[in-house]
Simulated scan of single mutants.
Amino acid sequence: MSVVERIAGDADVLILCDHASNHVPGDIDLGIDPALLDKHIAIDIGAAAVSRGLSERLGAPALLATVSRLVIDLNREVDAPGLIPHVSDGHAIPGNERVDRAERIARFHTAYHRAIAAQVRAQRPALIVSVHSFTPALESGIAVPRPWEAGILYNRDARAARLAVDWLAGQGIVTGDNEPYSGRLLNATMNRHAEETGTPYLGIEIRNDCISDPTGVARWCEILANLVTFVRDHLAQERAAAT
Rank of each mutant, 00 (worst) to 15 (best):
S2F: 05
V3C: 15
V3D: 13
V3N: 14
R6A: 12
A8D: 15
A8W: 10
G9F: 06
D12A: 14
V13Y: 13
I15W: 07
D18C: 09
D18Q: 07
D18G: 08
H23W: 11
H23I: 11
P25C: 01
G26Y: 06
I28F: 03
A35F: 02
D44H: 08
A47W: 08
A48L: 03
A49P: 09
S55I: 02
E56S: 15
R57M: 10
G59K: 01
A60K: 03
L64Q: 06
S68E: 07
R69C: 03
L70F: 01
L70N: 00
V71F: 10
L74M: 10
N75I: 00
V78D: 10
V78F: 03
A80E: 05
P81G: 04
P81S: 08
L83Y: 07
P85V: 01
H86K: 13
V87Y: 09
V87D: 06
S88P: 01
H91D: 12
N96D: 02
E97H: 11
R98A: 15
R104H: 05
R107K: 10
R107G: 07
A111S: 10
V120H: 05
A122S: 15
A122D: 14
A122V: 01
R124Q: 15
I128H: 01
I128Q: 03
S130E: 13
V131D: 08
H132P: 07
L138T: 13
E139R: 14
I142F: 14
I142W: 12
A143T: 07
V144Q: 13
V144H: 11
E149C: 04
A150W: 03
R156H: 14
R159F: 06
A160D: 12
W167C: 04
G170S: 07
Q171V: 00
Q171F: 09
T175F: 08
Y181N: 02
N187Q: 04
A188M: 01
A188W: 10
A188V: 03
T189I: 01
T197G: 10
Y201R: 03
I204C: 09
I211W: 10
S212G: 13
D213F: 01
P214R: 04
T215R: 15
R219T: 11
L227G: 00
L227H: 02
T229Y: 03
F230L: 02
V231G: 08
V231A: 07
R232Y: 07
R232P: 13
H234Y: 11
L235V: 04
A236T: 13
A240G: 09
A240N: 13
A241L: 07
A242R: 14
A242L: 13
